[in-house]
Design a protein around this nucleic acid. Structure first.
Lengths: 194, 194
DNA sequence: CCTTTCCAAGCGACCGGTCATCTTGCGTTA
DNA sequence: TAACGCAAGATGACCGGTCGCTTGGAAAGG
């Protein structure tokens, strides 16, 4: 009996594998094996490996943006506290469930493919722009309610916080330690969001 | 007559290619072709592709650390000015000679290979630690001479500045713009190094 | 001469992608 | 309700090409 194939589960497996090992180090055989699917079926659902990777990015974006909304757009807390809760949550996640690996898939793809492939660069940039908007809005909320210095340029500050956090995650991966993340948090809350 | 082969020039070519395209996307054939060297010769000088990449990292570290020394350890300037001169220099470099590609090779390798290969992670981490020390020392100098707030934890601040700058470069690659770098600079000089 | 260095040829494995063939569910017809 | 037709989906063998790496013997050096 031929089993019907669920492309979504393949994307999930792809997210798992490419999150850890990147794009070029994961073959289509790796993907279909992990999903228990025959190789030929891959191309019924995705026109190429690149096309598939774009779907993986979209899946990641969906999860990431949900997480950002949960923490940074939650009006129950003052914005300053939203940030601290979010960073604490991220530090906790990396410490306890990924042993400091993986980082951020959008950052990984930006690094691995950003300078060589325009389609990826543009796709990843869109994901970043949405993520960034959560940071920027939270900064604005904080300025409105008085928990964040109103003299800061909200847009630049939001961008800065996102990018600096991404940088801390890059470093975390080679340091195999949460130190870069905690240094980030401590600095941010003593100098930028005081 | 057989020409003698210069492994150093192969490493330079490797740096150029892997800086732009990463590790997995550059084959040994790409390397030897670019260096005008027969493929069989590769293994006279390097025992594997991984071994070669470690040499590439070392070559990059040599150049990077020289650049850092030039800008951040130059006692002619106050530390605050050393930082601003360094960041301006980096922004200028990316704007005018690389069209926002490449980023930092150590960061790239950390992203692409850091979570999957212990040898690379450790090697890259050593490079980062040395780079970090230039930041930390410059912060201390600034605190001694009064151009940087003495209440800051110099070590954490140096780490933070390096990692945040790395993050801005990740973002630069997908945004294809110097905006992340300028936002970084502006934020740093209005909130951290005031 | 012998030792060391060099390298073209080519190894098996695997790459991303194709394709001819088989299976299936469903609308149509009687 | 049963039989049929057929598009869409599923499948694994297979494509040319490239991967990282090995090797046997030629050339260079002492």
């Amino acid at each position: 009996m031929k089993t019907r194939i669920d492309p979504a589960s393949l994307v999930d497996k792809g997210l798992e594998l490419m999150y850890l090992r990147g794009y070029n180090d994961v073959s289509i055989k790796d993907l279909v094996d992990a999903a228990g699917m025959p190789k030929g079926s891959f191309y019924n659902h995705f026109k190429s490996k690149e096309d598939f990777a774009l779907a993986v990015i979209d899946r990641y974006a969906e999860m990431w943006h949900t997480e950002l909304r949960t923490f940074l757009a939650d009006k129950k807390y003052p914005a300053r506290e939203r940030f601290s809760r979010f960073f604490d949550h991220m530090i906790d996640t990396y410490e306890n469930s990924t042993h400091f690996t993986r980082g951020c898939l959008a950052g990984n793809f930006s690094q691995e493919l950003g300078d060589v492939n325009d389609v990826f660069a543009q796709h990843v940039d869109t994901v970043f722009r949405t993520a960034e908007s959560y940071f920027i809005h939270a900064v604005r909320d904080g300025q409105r309610e008085g928990s964040i210095d109103p003299k800061l340029d909200a847009e630049a500050t939001g961008q800065f916080l996102l990018n600096a956090f991404e940088g801390a995650m890059v470093r975390m991966k080679s340091a195999r330690s949460s130190r870069p993340l905690t240094a980030f948090r401590n600095l941010v809350f003593t100098t930028i969001i005081r």
